[in-house]
Amino acid sequence: MLDIYDFYDKMERNNIMLSFKGNITSDLLTSILQIMESKMDNMQEEPKVKKKVYNVLVECLQNLYHHMDEIPADPEISEQERSAIFMIGKQNNEYTIYTGNYILSQNVEKLKGRLDIVNSMSKEELKEYYKTILNNGEMSEKGGGGLGMIDIARKSGQKLNYNFVPVDDKNHFFSLNVKISQ
């Protein structure tokens, strides 16, 4: 039998406020954002912190959404590969947003390269990089365009903590943790 207490205990110890696993839809994002906004209101969170968390949350969730959107409608691709996980917790006045999703192994190097570039930059360099990509970068059909990770790093003011775990011969699991301190 599935030990639900084990889940509960892990979530409790990490002060998880909200979590979700499954297919990421536009309506789901609207709901998650609404729930987190009212939770932060109830906690009487400082407007400044609330805004930062909200902003970073939007980018993290929309990264998941656009990633799912790019997966072709192929019966070879399992439901599992279309599914993602999201959690947000607060510990010692620091919020952490956790996301995880499958990624084709062939795309790992490219994403890792982009994350490493962002992580190598100072605050000022990130600002310049953001402006360059904003002004010159190609925009994808849906409006993404490589700005998300730069924005997350700028707004959170911290390095992007990531990991890739090989899952099978085709896929890796990509996890990203973003901390936002007060």
């Binding site: 904003l134 002004n135 409006g143 365009g145 700005l147």
Partner: peptide
């Protein structure tokens, strides 16, 4: 608030 997807459209 605006997301990075909007930031390109605003530009």
């Amino acid at each position: 608030y605006f997301n990075t997807s909007s930031s390109k459209c605003i530009l």
